[in-house]
């Protein structure tokens, strides 16, 4: 199947870089722990896009054994990314579970308030 609009060659890679930097920036700059986890997710998704993009070739079909199919996309990165998605889900679930416990223990999910309380403890 031919896409109606030709995607310019490196567009996907630019999207990868933008997503990566946005995600990484959120992880570093935001004090809210949930937002940090969301940033981490965006960061991971950018890598998924990177893998999927590199396996796609122009006019490539799904990798099915059929005489009509001459060019097909490399399925291996897709499989790898399925694994990476599972890892990402597990990381997010564990991160959010920890945040729930942190809120119980500190009454806040803001990084700087937690740091203040920890300083008072010490």
């Amino acid at each position: 199947m031919q896409l109606p609009v030709e995607i310019p060659g490196l567009l996907n890679y630019w999207i990868v870089i933008v997503l990566m930097m946005v995600g990484f920036f959120v992880v570093i700059s935001h004090g809210n722990l949930v937002k940090k986890i969301v940033g981490l997710n965006v960061f991971q998704v950018s890598v998924f896009v990177l893998y999927i993009t590199m396996s796609k070739i122009d006019g490539g079909a799904a990798p099915i054994l059929d005489d009509a199919i001459k060019n097909y996309s490399n399925p291996l990165p897709h499989v790898l990314i399925l694994t990476a998605i599972v890892v990402g889900v597990a990381t997010t679930a564990l991160g959010l579970a920890l945040i729930v416990r942190i809120r119980d223990a500190y009454g806040t999910i803001e990084d700087d308030e937690i740091t203040n309380q920890e300083r008072d403890d010490a």
Binding site: L33, K36, L40, G95, L98, I102
Partner: peptide, 9 residues
């Protein structure tokens, strides 16, 4: 808990 979360990130 916070040590674990920071390590996780």
């Amino acid at each position: 808990l916070t040590a674990a979360l920071r390590y996780l990130i």
